[in-house]
Design a protein around this nucleic acid. Structure first.
Lengths: 203, 203
DNA sequence: GATATAATTGAACAGTCGTTCAACTACTGG
DNA sequence: CCAGTAGTTGAACGACTGTTCAATTATATC
């Protein structure tokens, strides 16, 4: 009996997420969101409750995309170390294809406000923790393989890789000369994944 | 002949900086700043021109404090590697003494907005580049000393250390369990400063 | 086609934003 | 002690903020 929903929730979420990604939470006004989504305030409030609710939904949406990237690049049948290298190559690729310098929405979220909103902070942190966990799994596999020598536990190595990603995202904002980000990743992977002790073990 | 200035510019700047540090640029209103500095809008605008001008001055003020920390911990007569270790120890110390999780104002500045304001971004980036340069000098010295084995050039190693600091500041926002940040620094310093190839060279 | 239901509309709300400026005040040189 | 200068005051400005809600519209069932 009721009038059916005619709003394209998915499209609206995508547009809102892009806006939050580009401009941050506090700098993005509902007015801009209504303009970008071609929705009126009432519809947005009906669908998402509030600006905050919309942001949480946008974080979720971003998280979905990240998970796809994770399964596409970090899981698979290739040797675990190569999968990690590919993930970082894809990360650099993404940065190169991001001339606006938007960075990573989750990291931006963690650093943008004074982290006053515990729920938002925690949601972003949880999503990033998934990436870290995926790294740890791949690293453990690599050690089991003999691809990677013993050394710091997988969790510690995974944290180091995450630290590298976080650092990259900060460097990205300084608009460094071409090649610097690639160099950083190269050095990071070298010191994290090429334990010289293991050299003799490799084929 | 004119009425002398009765405003304590330094104290106002300190208060404003603390506020920006805690709450970020866009979240901090001039009203809050007038309350914290006990100054009226007119006085603030007379002394700093605009909210943006005040922020730039606050960044400068923060930069001054950072330079003091640099000369206190990263320069001196101790062996360069130990100076670097001390700098990181001091960094961890500062994080432990920062229950609010304010982080680093410069890094917050880089990540907070969409970096739309080129001058602000560049000022923050330049200040951080100074730290990186100081690392590079210390690392070069360490290689010359024989304290540190050859390997990646000092600039690359310095960038890795900066990446570590940036990463730490992001991790800090996730309110990780106690000890995690210390572990990260430990691993970072180990892989960056303890090149196993050099082991035989050490005393 | 009448009715019930809910999605949609957009003008309007109270509050806050960064900023301004005419009036006022306090001091110094003569 | 007067005149002149500039620092200080705070009410007020227009613009914009996130949000609401009565009116309107469109559909599905009976």
């Amino acid at each position: 009996m009721p009038r059916p929903v005619s709003i394209d929730r998915a499209q609206a979420l995508e547009q809102a997420m892009l806006l939050f990604w580009r401009r941050g939470y506090h700098q993005t006004s509902m007015r801009e969101i209504t303009a970008a989504t071609r929705l009126l305030p009432g519809s947005l409030y009906g669908a998402f409750g509030s600006k905050r609710g919309l942001y949480l939904a946008a974080l979720d949406h971003y998280h979905d995309g990240l998970q796809q990237a994770l399964t596409a690049h970090l899981q698979g049948t290739a040797p675990p170390l190569e999968r990690i290298r590919r993930f970082f190559a894809e990360l650099l690729n993404g940065i190169a294809r991001d001339p606006e310098g938007k960075g990573c929405l989750l990291i931006n979220t963690l650093l943008e406000p004074p982290a006053a909103d515990a729920e938002i902070t925690q949601q972003a942190a949880a999503a990033l923790a998934e990436v870290e966990a995926a790294f740890a799994v791949a690293l453990e596999e690599a050690v089991g393989n003999g691809e990677l020598a013993d050394g710091p536990p997988p969790e510690a190595r995974a944290r180091l890789l995450m630290t590298g990603i976080y650092g990259l995202r900060v460097y990205q904002r300084t608009t460094p000369p071409a090649g610097v980000l690639n160099d950083i990743v190269e050095t990071l992977l070298k010191v994290t994944l090429e334990n010289p002790v293991a050299k003799e073990k490799r084929t």
